[in-house]
């Protein structure tokens, strides 16, 4: 039984790895780079909670969830782009994050779209 994708947010027909291959499968075609990104701003409510949490330190759960959701969105967009090209796997996936404006961050996922047997 193959490993299925984590969560229901991704199409289980697409394999994603961050190594040069899809283990157990043979790559038959390359489709080039695919990417997905999203820009998220912080929520005022979670900002206030974070401000309080900032006093004593520790995990800011609101932000963790925010960035987690954003990353899933970026991955989903990347997968959609790959599917448009006719690929069924994305290899060598990397993540990048950048702060682009006051309180907003861009999350990006990119990789190589391939077709596997």
């Amino acid at each position: 039984m193959p490993i299925t994708n984590v969560g229901a947010w991704l199409d289980s027909r697409v394999d994603i790895t961050n190594i040069d291959s899809v283990p157990g499968k043979k790559i038959v075609a390359h489709y080039g780079l695919v990417q997905g990104s999203t820009v998220r701003a912080r929520h005022v409510g979670s900002d206030i909670a974070a401000g309080l949490k900032n006093m004593v330190g520790g995990e800011l759960k609101g932000y963790t969830k925010l960035l987690d959701d954003a990353r899933k969105e970026a991955l989903t967009r990347m997968v959609q782009q790959a599917q448009l090209l006719g690929a069924n796997a994305v290899i060598n996936v990397r993540f990048a994050t950048s702060a682009i404006a006051q309180g907003a961050a861009e999350l990006m996922a990119y990789g190589t779209a391939v077709r596997v047997e």
Binding site: I3, P23, G24, L60, L67, R71, F95
Partner: peptide, 27 residues
């Protein structure tokens, strides 16, 4: 390491974990 024995792999899938953390006022 990226170069692992390819023959020994059954299947694979991307996984990730993240955490947002802040330090306290004293620090």
């Amino acid at each position: 390491s990226k170069s692992i024995e390819q023959d020994n792999l059954l299947d694979g899938q991307l996984v990730y974990g993240s955490v947002v953390i802040s330090h306290d006022y004293f620090k």
